[in-house]
Nucleic acid binder design. Structure first.
Length: 423
DNA sequence: AATCCACAGGAAGCCCGGGAAC
DNA sequence: GTTCCCGGGCTTCCTGTGGATT
């Protein structure tokens, strides 16, 4: 256990009070997150109308067609469907029609049982009567669900977000047939996916019943992203806290990344957070640059954290060699052979079996593809052909992550070829 | 022009864990 | 429970190669 001692001064002074009072840049931080659903969705009017016109039979008590929605990340699929759902519920209340709207993210709820359990529990308010997360036979949950939906009556719309993450197509098959078991109510399904080839691998029966209506969400272009950012900035940020060129810059950067509005919002939000942390009154383009950098570094660190230990060892070898070279004034990149030598020693030190050079070479190219290191093939003429390996900028941060692993703690100081290397 | 380094990277096959089929 | 199959990680063995050096 680590004990943290606060200096007396800080404890006595009101930290949070000061931070709350401090002149931040945000009015509503949440509005800058991609989970926030604004009251208007710019440049998605057509999509909203399309979905709404498919859904409108629900308000007349008829079954709406099932819909399948495609689109890359950050094209507003989830936001638009949730938005339409909200409107549908409101109108249902107004007109006295019973309309249920259930949103499920299949990346989290990814098995048939848990899907059925989730939907069923949506109709049960009493905690004690809920379907447990395990224990029941799946068909019992299914029949309970049918009973409940029928009792409830009206139309139930089920959104399955990231439906391609659902394991097995049995769940989809059963859900798509559920209407034939219902007497007083209707179910309609909206499937959302960013995998365009998803239906190709689906059972043809499921495909035809689920894809009664197909919709594709195109990526936003730079101008559209700009409008989205401007709309959110008005809600989220204090007036006059943005330099004029910040939003165009964020939009342009995100448009390069196949029109991902989510990324644009993250970029702007993190820029604002960085500016706030620096006590800056305005967000300028230099904060956008560092935000972009921060997003990239965070991504790399996350990848490093989840790397298998052999790859971590190889990565550590690369970093060690690079540091060693820098300290002893040797310029030029590292070769596969050098990395392999250090790697073998590290393995000996932590008493693990080492892999063959062939395999290590493959792992090095994997690290390259993940963007953690760069490894390009060069020929040194007489002295052979090899890869030239460099660590991507943030090697200090990567080291920190590697040290988190108990496995590598013993390697914080490492002797190699008679020289002490300090990590 | 020939040589030769230090690997790259393909091919085949082993081993093992997990899921489907029996 | 057992058998079969598949895919991923890995090894072994192999051929190929760009260009400085001879």
């Amino acid at each position: 256990m680590e004990v943290v001692y606060f200096p007396k001064k800080i404890v006595e002074s009101d930290i949070f009070g000061r931070l709350l009072k401090s002149d931040g840049l945000f009015i509503d931080r949440e509005a800058m997150r991609h989970t926030y659903i604004p009251s208007e969705l710019p440049h998605r009017l057509k999509e909203i109308n399309d979905i709404a016109s498919v859904m409108v039979p629900a308000l007349r008590g008829e079954t709406p067609s099932n819909i399948f929605i495609y689109g890359k990340t950050g094209t507003g699929k989830t936001a638009v469907t949730k938005f339409v759902g909200q409107q549908l519920i409101n109108k249902g209340k107004e007109t006295g029609k019973s309309v249920n709207f259930i949103y499920i993210n299949c990346e989290i709820v990814d098995t048939q049982y848990r899907l059925l359990q989730n939907i069923t529990n949506h109709f049960i308010s009493e905690w004690s009567e809920r379907v447990p997360f395990t224990g029941w036979p799946t068909d019992e949950v299914y029949s309970k669900l049918i009973k409940l939906i029928d009792k409830n009556g009206g139309v139930t719309v089920i959104i399955l977000d990231e439906v391609d993450k659902l394991k097995g197509d049995e769940a989809l098959y059963n859900l798509s047939r559920i209407n034939s078991s219902l007497k007083n109510s209707k179910v309609s399904i909206i499937g959302i996916s960013n995998d365009l080839r998803f239906t190709e691998i689906l059972d043809p029966r499921v495909r035809s019943s689920l894809g009664e209506e197909n919709m594709i969400f195109p990526p936003y272009d730079a101008g559209e992203i700009k409008d989205i950012l401007e709309q959110r900035a008005i809600i989220a940020l204090k007036p006059n806290s943005l330099d004029d060129d910040v939003i165009p810059l964020c939009s342009a950067l995100a448009a390069q990344e196949h029109g991902d509005a989510r990324r644009a919002l993250d970029l702007l939000r993190i820029s604002a957070e960085l500016a706030e942390r620096k006590n800056s009154k305005k967000i300028s383009r230099k904060f956008v640059k560092s935000a972009q950098n921060k997003i990239e570094v965070d991504r790399i660190l996350e990848v490093v954290r989840t790397l298998p230990s052999q790859s971590k060892t190889i990565l550590l070898s690369v970093i060690l060699q690079e540091k060693h070279n820098k300290n002893s004034g040797i310029r030029g990149a590292i070769t596969t052979g050098e990395v392999y030598e250090i790697y073998k020693e590290l393995c000996k030190k932590i008493r693990t079996d080492s892999l063959t050079q062939r395999r290590v070479a493959d792992l090095i190219s994997e690290l390259d593809m993940l963007g953690i290191i760069t490894a390009r093939v060069i020929s040194k003429g007489r002295y052979g052909r090899t890869r030239e390996i460099n660590v991507s900028s943030s090697s200090e941060e990567i080291l920190k992550i590697l040290k988190e692993d108990d496995f590598f703690k013993s390697l914080t100081e490492y002797k190699f070829s008679g020289q002490t290397r300090l990590i």
